[in-house]
Design a binder for these strands. Structure first.
Lengths: 210, 210
DNA sequence: CGAGAAACTTTTACCGAGTCAAACTTTATG
DNA sequence: CATAAAGTTTGACTCGGTAAAAGTTTCTCG
């Protein structure tokens, strides 16, 4: 770990190169119109090598998932004693926002990301799958803690919904052209609304029909 | 509509035949190990025809989605005046269960369905995508009613989580070998637990660490 | 340092999903 | 009954993804 070694360094460099090349091409022409063969050629590498690093084409674009999953899992698992998962996650979302982190959704460059994501149903499907993986990870943590698998999965689902909706909301506004600064400012309330809802329930929303 | 006509009848018959053949093969050998060409041949039809009826291979197995989506949307949109979406959906789940409907999850033959579904990541991904479509449909209804897109999407997500988790829970028990009658009896409480959670929130679950 | 093992890459060949266009067959219509 | 319209088939093709074997590069250890 301390000394990466030449081999490991080269691997990381190759991986990064492929990812960068791919991201660039996707940003220009969308996901489907770029073939893996083309990415390989542009990166000066064989098609097989691309698949060595990224098992699915979708992973070329959504390559931060593993990090995100780990981070969120840690936030929940290693939360301070006496803190509920809702509180821990709420706090974490506020921190991401304050730090201007891409995963807050309220970030300038997000527009391109969202466009590419929506340029392909397959890519969006993978994105949803990753959200599901987050929910599953939460559920596992809760089940370990409580032994109540059903309730764990329910709570995990609700919390994941809050997180992903908050993100999508910010992204949507950025893409719609709202000023990032404005979105960022107003995201604070959005986060609280989402987690309040998860914490206290939807009640009778929406108001009953006439 | 009243008179289908020979043409239309033949189309429906062909569609049904393909679907049946496919389902049978999937049940025997799983999703991935059956090719579309094989299904076409077994149904006495060309590969192209299969794709005429089912745009994606996954749709050969998950061909009830459109019905489910329509039904759930109607439950929410056409709920009785004065009834909240939570109440309407809760009631609907109880009805499915009482009627022994497959979508209650507590059904004898469900085991095969679940096995096939889990035999393929691609298939599961499509399943999740369909759940997302349900959430989107709910969100659209709520947004029309209230104009509050953010809250609508949040609530839609929470409700969808309740529905899908309830279903998955029952399926899981059936597959685990629990007697369908037992599962069915105990599902009543499961449904209520899920919708209570959506209605009143997760609070501080799980109890603080230590 | 140098030889051999281990890890990574490339090549080649292949399979299956899905698309397209053109030819062909069946049902509908006047 | 003729002809249009709808549906099906054929064949060729693209692209994502896998497998195996051979070729390189880095590592390791005497």
């Amino acid at each position: 770990m301390a000394d990466p070694g030449l081999r490991e360094r080269k691997k990381q460099a190759t991986r990064q190169l492929i990812s960068n090349v791919a991201t660039g091409l996707f940003a220009l022409r969308g996901f489907e119109d770029v073939t893996v063969a083309e990415i390989a050629e542009a990166a000066g590498v064989s098609k097989m090598t691309v698949f060595n690093y990224f098992p699915r084409k979708e992973d070329l674009f959504l390559d931060r998932h593993a990090d995100r999953l780990r981070e969120l899992t840690e936030v929940v698992r290693d939360r301070p004693a006496g803190t509920s998962p809702v509180a821990a996650l709420r706090r974490h979302q506020h921190e991401l926002l304050a730090a201007g982190h891409p995963l807050s959704g309220a970030i300038t460059g997000g527009s391109g990301f969202w466009w590419v994501l929506n340029s392909s149903p397959a890519l969006k499907a993978r994105w949803y799958e990753q959200e599901r993986e987050i929910a599953d990870a939460f559920a596992e943590v809760f089940t370990e803690e409580t032994g109540d698998a059903l309730r764990s999965r329910l709570v995990a689902g609700l919390l994941t919904t809050a997180i992903t909706t908050v993100f999508a909301h910010a992204m949507g506004r950025i893409v719609a052209g709202d000023a990032p600064e404005t979105v960022r400012r107003e995201q604070v309330a959005v986060i609280d609304q989402a987690f309040d809802l998860a914490e206290h329930g939807v009640g009778a929303f929406p108001a009953a029909l006439e």
